[in-house]
Nucleic acid binder design. Structure first.
Lengths: 189, 189
DNA sequence: TATGACATGTAATCTGTTACATGATTAG
DNA sequence: CTAATCATGTAACAGATTACATGTCATA
């Protein structure tokens, strides 16, 4: 019951298309950088691009400049940019956390260039709020679960809690980083 | 290119079927506990159970005891138990880490009851090794990436590194826990 | 001119999601 | 008797994976 109609591969593509790219370029990003969580297979990317184009979020144009091979370069449309902005701006829900941090991080990674540092800070604050109540919920569930499971089960659950706490620490670190940057800009050099 | 033919829902079901359960019981586990990452929808679970039964890994039998409703209870077959053991015992690869910690934690959570505390310790040690080299790889990639991306991109990447380090800390904590338990059992009370 | 890398795509298949359908039992 | 809940499923569809197909260009 995710509130999204576009799967996260779609948003990853929209985000990367801030810089116009071909399908092949995008595949290389997925296979070479540590966005390997996304598939670099043509059978995933080309259909996804076709869907985005059909939805009017991107626009492909065949590039025939300097004796190159046929290469279709995709660009964000205004509609696509606005969809991307909405996705980033959306408040972080408990559901987002349950389902995984990956998509939240993707939103954050794109937030600064698609919108602004202020938007990044907003997203971090929203994440911080969601994390705090999520950690409380996990701790409560842990108390209930503790007597019912073997040591490995308890430890696995604790791993989840620790990971979430670690993410919360990171949001504080990230917010501090933005504050320092703001000060450096704001104060006379 | 995951080395698994059975999707992780299948293994989650096998693990839970250490205790014989109906499809409905299993759905309740997914919806009520924090295994919400798995779908609790009948359209996922019943077909998955049917596949496992077809593969000979579980066996369903209709329970007609005390005027109950029709209820099919599934049990692990010897083949299913052996498949489950193999899945847990498999060494942790870099691929497993890229794809997400979730499945590794599931393996660990089941390890103690399906196999033994010794198996849990083995899995932790395998995870530790994989994490160390993965963290090195991430750090290297970070150095390359750092000058090319905006602050939010750098921070998102750092979040990944920190999360992985946090997981490594947890493996040490978990190993220490098992050592203490071993001592308590081994030493005179 | 043949080989391999570039670039794009399609087809078969599998899994999961959503929504609906079925029947049995219990509570009011 | 009727409504709600238990328990099981199915059908239609979306998306990903794998493997294959196609054509272009560079180089040997």
């Amino acid at each position: 019951m995710r509130s999204t109609q576009i799967p996260s591969l779609g948003y990853a593509l929209l985000g990367l298309l801030q810089k116009p790219s071909s399908g092949y370029d995008l595949r290389k990003v997925f296979s070479s950088t540590s966005m390997k969580t996304f598939s670099d297979s043509p059978g995933a990317i080309y259909p996804a691009l076709a869907r985005l184009e059909k939805a009017g979020l991107i626009r492909g144009s065949i590039e025939e400049g300097s004796g190159l091979r046929r290469r279709q370069v995709f660009r964000l449309t205004p509609k696509g940019l606005s969809e991307l902005k909405q996705w980033i701006t959306r408040p972080v829900t408990q559901e987002d956390l349950v389902w995984g941090q990956q998509e939240i991080m993707l939103r954050f990674a794109f937030s600064e260039t698609v919108l602004s540092p202020a938007a990044s800070i907003n997203l971090l604050q929203s994440l911080e709020t969601a994390l705090k109540s999520y950690i409380d919920a996990l701790r409560e569930e842990f108390e209930v679960l503790k007597p019912m499971v073997p040591a490995s089960g308890r430890l696995a659950f604790e791993c989840g809690i620790r990971g979430t706490e670690c993410l919360l620490d990171w949001t504080h670190y990230a917010l501090a980083t933005y504050e320092n940057e703001g000060n450096r800009k704001g104060s006379p050099s």
